[in-house]
Amino acid sequence: MHLLLVTGFLGSGKTTLVIKLAQAATDQGRRVAILVNEIGEIGIDDQLMRQLDLNVWEMLNGCICCTLSADLVTTLQTLDQDYDADLAILEPSGAAEPDNILLALPYYRGRPLDSIRSVSVLDPLRLPELFEVLTPLITKQLAHSKLLLINKADVTTADQIAEARRIAAEVNPDARVVVLSARESLSPQMLAELMPWTP
């Protein structure tokens, strides 16, 4: 089972990206499970994904980077043992700290994971404001991943993308930055990067 962690702040477009990836993997005949951790008392993303016939495991009433980290481990084990997933896509809440999530993985006792990949999604429309107001959280989310996706390219200006690039480079100079619109189709290169079996 491959594990893909899709992080990013609330409203950055994580769910849209996850749906696109899950549909692409399913089209390739892969068995995909999506683990969604939402803040709030109503799970909206999981309802939406179920409407699209995707297999969703929701984790509510807590955060998988702290209070639900044990649930994450047991859910991953269930996916490995009972569901035989090829790909588990993990979408933490937009307020989660990604590094804490990875700290729980050593307690996973299923078959060894084939790969662990992580991508952070950024909203260039709001990144400057969020970076100023919620600096610690945004910094952790940006610093976590080697691949940063500047999303919403279809509705942003060149200046907004340039500013998002500047902030991304300031926080995480080693990361690769890709500009895309998750609402539109994902490039074959992006699919190959996030789904390792893709030719």
């Binding site: 803040i39 008392e41 955060c63 980077c65 702290c66 209070t67 980290s69 044990a70 481990v73 047991t74 084990q77 307020a95 989660a96 700290e97 804490n100 700290l103 729980a104 307690y107 006792r109 919620l134 610690p136 959280l137």
Partner: peptide, 23 residues
């Protein structure tokens, strides 16, 4: 309705996890 106390975010609690029982 669930009217549990509001939670503070982002997380400030320490990570917590439980070791699975040994087989």
């Amino acid at each position: 309705p669930d009217r549990s106390p509001a939670r503070a975010w982002p997380c400030r609690r320490s990570p917590r996890w439980v070791r699975p029982r040994a087989c």
